[in-house]
Design a protein around this nucleic acid. Structure first.
Lengths: 235, 235
DNA sequence: AGATTGAAGATTGTCAACAATATTGGCAGT
DNA sequence: ACTGCCAATATTGTTGACAATCTTCAATCT
């Protein structure tokens, strides 16, 4: 089951990527319970590897587990959004600080390439791709900063953002608020002054925070209604 | 086996704290292999819960696992030290930024209390306690910053530092380099200017980095010798 | 002698059954 | 009706056995 040819990875590793994808895309809805037996059955494996995979996602902050009660897909809170954006601003400023003096042509070229991908996705109205593209665009500076720990932190933050935005997309049908400031980011990142970059980045983030916040509020309001219709078994 | 009375925690959770402690204090030496069967036997449990616990430590960056090969206690590298200190400086500056305008009497009082503990530990030559105390001192600002994600990041960094310094202590017998600048930190943190605080903090960290780097170099030199005496079975 | 192969042992990965715990729903008593 | 208790069920936690993989090391071949 799963991929029997090319079985270079261990089973739990495969499940990790599979599960993570399901959570990040919203296939497993935020707040919903993940039942080991059912999921293991659906994947065609036993609970052991699945539990390991789930444990990893728990540590990544994508699932939440309470002993003997159950584990659920993590759900957004306003506090979290604030925390994430504050951290993100801090880390991204730091990352730019690290690479600023040794920005290469490679960096510039790759930045432009990713921006093109983002613009294309937006123009085509492909919101899933747009989310990924935007995160990839911002991710470049972390990759170039050459700091393993920083990169890990970004991966964690990135996951949460991706997940929340995916939830947004589902809740609101299709539309992710179209931000007009994408090219701005490029301009900052390729400019001359580090200080200006950081200031602009801060504003850029503030805007993103506002957008995301608005989403969270509307979504949690929407969930109030839901709750009466389909009460879950536990909690 | 472990704690049978007061069994409110699940077994794997207990093992996690137990194992983490063992790794952080150096009871499980950096670079050494962790064999599931042996350890499970020693703990009086089966491999299941132990594997889950190990998985969590892997995600915390304290263990490293290669499928079908084994998992080892993570070992420091010079790059890691650089990365950690750079991140730490960034995050701690950020944390101070977050709390600066709402520093309370509580904060000041607790900071002084923890500094007293640190000084006492140093005076008594209790190096283990001194390490913990120093990390606790610096940890206060993260706790007050009231940002869950930031706090998690600090926990990760803190773990690595604690581990490395514990390894230092073991390799060099007793002495952790006595830093004379502890009171400085207090003075910065309770001062008036955020900018000055951040500048001073940066210097403070630079000093810490130098100290730690020196240790790492001497230790890896020392390990060269070791390696011939006790070759491990694998790799 | 050096390289190759293949069996034996060690270690990790996976599985299915069992135990512990929490939730649900009905039943008795008020 | 309402409340508290008890059995039934669902779900997670734990265990021991088995399978897959890697390492070692000796036997064989060139």
């Amino acid at each position: 089951m799963l991929s029997s040819p090319l079985k270079r990875q261990t089973l739990s590793a495969q499940i990790v990527t599979l599960l993570r994808h399901a959570v990040l895309t919203g296939e497993l809805e935020p707040g919903s319970q993940v039942i080991e037996n059912a999921l293991a059955l659906r994947l065609g494996t036993s609970r052991g590897p699945l539990r390991e995979a789930m444990r990893q996602l728990i540590d990544e902050g994508l699932l939440i587990s309470v002993p003997y009660i159950g584990t659920r897909v993590v759900d957004i809170s306003l506090e979290d959004v604030n925390d994430i954006y504050a951290m993100r601003t801090c880390l991204e400023q730091f990352a730019f600080e690290q690479i600023w003096d040794r920005r290469s042509g490679d960096f510039e070229q790759e930045l432009l390439r990713r921006n093109d991908i983002l613009k294309k996705a937006i123009d085509q109205g492909d919101h899933v791709a747009a989310i990924e593209a935007e995160l990839d665009l911002h991710g470049l500076v972390y990759e170039h900063a050459n700091n393993r720990i920083l990169k890990n932190s970004w991966t964690g933050l990135r996951g949460h953002l991706q997940m929340y935005w995916a939830a947004h997309r589902r809740a609101h049908g299709t539309s992710v608020p179209k931000r007009e400031s994408h090219d701005d980011y490029i301009r900052f990142a390729l400019g001359d002054s580090l200080g200006a970059m950081q200031d602009n980045l801060r504003d850029h983030m503030r805007l993103g925070l506002e957008t995301t916040k608005a989403f969270v509020e509307s979504r949690s309001a929407l969930k109030e209604q839901d709750h009466n219709q389909k009460p879950t078994r536990r909690e």
